[in-house]
Design a protein around this nucleic acid. Sequence first.
DNA 1: TATTGACTTGACAGTTATTGTCAAATGTAT
DNA 2: ATACATTTGACAATAACTGTCAAGTCAATA
Lengths: 101, 101
Amino acid sequence: MSNQFGDRIKLLREESQLLQRQVASQLDMDTSMLSKIESGDRKAKKNQITQFAKVLKVNADELLTLWLADQLIEVVEGEYLALKAILVAEEEVKYNAKKKK
Amino acid sequence: MSNQFGDRIKLLREESQLLQRQVASQLDMDTSMLSKIESGDRKAKKNQITQFAKVLKVNADELLTLWLADQLIEVVEGEYLALKAILVAEEEVKYNAKKKK
DNA sequence: TATTGACTTGACAGTTATTGTCAAATGTAT
DNA sequence: ATACATTTGACAATAACTGTCAAGTCAATA
């Protein structure tokens, strides 16, 4: 399963030489929870993304994008129509963006 | 909210001059359920898509694509990073498709 | 304007999925 | 072996979803 968010925060944490314990405590979570988030077993709550960004000193948009992408992939994973569905969704999003203006 | 699947099956049903009651009975569901599916209030189960296709005499792939697209849109709805996330997911899907070969 | 039939809606209990937490297991370096 | 970091499995608590029922609206017709 795809886990771009988890992979990214794990890499960032390691680059910052932080222990799970240190990151977890700042986000007020158990290390076991952080471990699961890093491995993709559980997903972070949306409101934790900002905190991750702060602790790991990275742009929150980058993390949010990966977090959303993981969920998109989860929806279409294993579907042979995955790409087609994504293109349909993309059109819809573009259309809505235009309409909003 | 986006409801491409529901809109489509409703249109197909009307074009076929079928009543909700008639379609619903063939799929072994309550008309209230069908009404909600058509309006996007509830979503069809995946295994019902084939049945819809059969009753409405349309390609199942088309319906499955819309059904998946609805769920994709649900994930990114209201997110200003929606498009970016979709592009990231798209790349991932393409990459996985290539890897599989 | 009463009746009929098609469709919609709201509320509910039953079921399923997700959540955080704990304890135990595993890994890793000293 | 010890100490510390990380992972894993299981569990109860909670949240989300499901189908169904009854009551509701709506449109056409007698």
